[in-house]
């Protein structure tokens, strides 16, 4: 076997390189100009170094987002890997920011970097947390809204990993439907 002085100090590689983005709402600037790439990482250790270094989601100002996406995919509908896709959306009640938001977002991150969706992990583009006064949201974005086997598998695993009650129903919405909606309601393409 391999023997080296660095044994035990080697970092654990991830399947994918991931990019962490930060969005800060400034109404005086274009949406795209409020989106900032913070950093990229591709090992378990570098993930934790980053996670420990940044603010918890619950400490962000309202209007801010974190987005963790695979390297090369921008966290916007327009990206070619997103435009035919959609998102599993978990909407939190206001009071859950203090009790649940950080735990649920960390669990979402662990699903992504650990490739929790097995053979369907290929379909995952990234995840977003929106910190909002009216209620925070966490979503996993996938690349093909018509891929029902992948989308429903990802949804079931996501709901299970978040520890949501079987009574809670979460919905998957196609970005194309969200982008063209005429009111704040977007129909669910799938639910789990």
């Amino acid at each position: 076997g391999k023997l080296s002085l660095g044994e035990g100090l080697e970092k654990h590689p991830l399947e994918n390189r991931w990019a962490l983005w930060f969005f800060k709402n400034d109404r005086n600037r274009a949406w795209r100009d409020n989106l900032h790439l913070l950093t990229k990482f591709d090992t378990v250790e570098d993930f934790w170094a980053l996670y420990s270094h940044i603010q918890l989601a619950s400490k962000l100002s309202s209007g801010c987002d974190y987005a963790l996406f695979k390297d090369g995919i921008e966290p916007m509908w327009e990206d070619c890997r997103n435009k035919h896709g959609g998102r599993w959306l978990v909407s939190l009640a206001k009071q859950q920011r203090q009790s649940n938001l950080d735990r649920l977002w960390l669990e979402t991150l662990l699903c992504l970097v650990g490739e929790a969706f097995e053979e369907y992990s290929e379909e995952v583009c990234g995840a977003v947390v929106n910190v909002r006064t009216k209620g925070d949201k966490i979503a996993i974005w996938t690349s093909e809204a018509e891929n029902q086997p992948a989308v429903t598998f990802i949804g079931r695993v996501f709901k299970d990993r978040l520890g949501l009650s079987p009574k809670v129903v979460i919905g998957y919405q196609a970005h194309a439907d969200t982008a063209t909606k005429s009111n704040s309601f977007t129909k669910n393409k799938f639910v789990v």
Partner: peptide, 18 residues
Amino acid sequence: GTRIIYDRKFLLECKNSP
């Protein structure tokens, strides 16, 4: 090919290792 999968227990242990 093979996919590198880590379960949550392993990932959390890595957080706490020096």
